[in-house]
């Protein structure tokens, strides 16, 4: 009888150990979760890798999924840093306030939202109104904006994308996208589509149009110059000065958000990202570093 009891106790102990080990493990190795914008995911991934080389004790996990996905994750408490390629909506600030989350925003990089077409497309520039008309589906033939006699093939992102939301608000002026737009899973898929579609037009962060190995615009791709209105000069999103000055009409800041003033590993990581060294990586990835009042604001929010 005694022996039996011992056996049962040992078995119960083992069972408990099996149940609790994962719980203990997960607590001792807590990862910092970064989630959100697909436009930012490659950049933040590289920043995280560089950061972890120097700080192996701070493990980071970087995920994409789209700006809205990241923001909901921060609101639901399932990530530590939310990446967004658009401004936060008032509704999201309200939800954060209701949940007692104090949102701190950090501008990580400046992006010239790029309108791209296939290299074979004879067009070199479009006006804001033309981009809007194309994406609303009001213009269906390239001929109507001065291009070839081909049906326009629209590539865009899905509604969880910050880029999708940004373009809808700032270019389409909140009139809905054409339902003929192909909704792709990420920036890379849009590029993939445009490269093989001579009638295609797509939008993507400027960091995605440059081939990292050559520093030039990817082969087969053409980045259109955009002008504010007909008759005005057009600028390329690759033109740093035009993006900073706002002459390039669809430039934007790319954001990271935390719950409250960051501490510990999260703070160290954001400090690294905003440091000259981190901003150099931003530039190497094709985006533009933060300067001026935004940099000032970042410093304030870190305190």
């Amino acid at each position: 009888m005694n022996e039996k009891w011992i056996k049962i106790l040992v078995l119960a102990g083992l069972a408990l150990a099996i149940v609790f080990t994962p719980v203990l493990m997960s607590q001792s190795r807590k990862m910092i979760q970064v989630k959100g914008s697909d436009t930012l995911v490659n950049l933040v991934q590289i920043l995280a890798e560089n950061f972890m080389e120097k700080n192996p004790s701070v493990p980071l996990a970087v995920l994409g999924g789209g700006s809205s996905t990241g923001i909901s994750a921060l609101l639901n408490g399932t990530c530590d840093i939310a990446d967004a390629s658009r401004d936060w909506k008032q509704k999201e600030f309200d939800q954060a306030w209701e949940k007692g989350i104090k949102v701190k925003l950090f501008a990580l990089a400046i992006d010239g939202l790029s309108i791209v077409v296939n290299e074979k497309n004879p067009l070199n520039e479009l006006t804001m109104d033309q981009v809007a008309a194309l994406y609303r589906g009001e213009v269906k033939k390239w001929k109507d904006v001065g291009g070839a006699d081909l049906k326009v093939s629209l590539y865009g992102r899905q509604s969880n994308s910050g880029t999708y939301a940004f373009l809808l608000e700032h270019v389409l002026k909140n009139k809905p996208y054409s339902t003929d737009m192909k909704e792709m899973n990420g920036n890379a898929q849009i590029i993939e589509g445009i490269l093989s579609d001579e009638a295609g037009i797509g939008y993507t962060g400027v960091g995605y149009v440059v081939d990292k190995s050559t520093g030039q615009v990817m082969k087969g791709l053409k980045v259109l110059k955009i002008s504010k209105a007909k008759g005005q000069p057009s600028y390329s999103p690759l033109d740093k000065e035009a993006v900073y000055s706002g002459n390039y009409p669809i430039s934007r800041a790319l954001w990271q958000a935390t719950n409250g003033t960051p501490t510990g590993g999260v703070k160290a990581f954001i400090e690294y990202e905003l440091s000259p060294e981190g901003q150099k990586v931003v530039e190497a990835e094709g985006f533009f570093p933060i300067q001026g009042p935004l940099a000032e604001k970042n410093r304030e929010n870190l305190k």
Partner: peptide
């Protein structure tokens, strides 16, 4: 990944289409 996910009503096999499953997958996350 393969069908383009356009929301228009399909008029033929060469139209980009969005199926019920794709739509759930695209939107449930956000």
């Amino acid at each position: 990944m393969a069908t383009g996910n356009a929301r228009s009503f399909p008029t033929g096999l060469f139209d980009s289409v969005r199926t019920l499953t794709s739509n759930i997958a695209i939107e449930l996350g956000e």
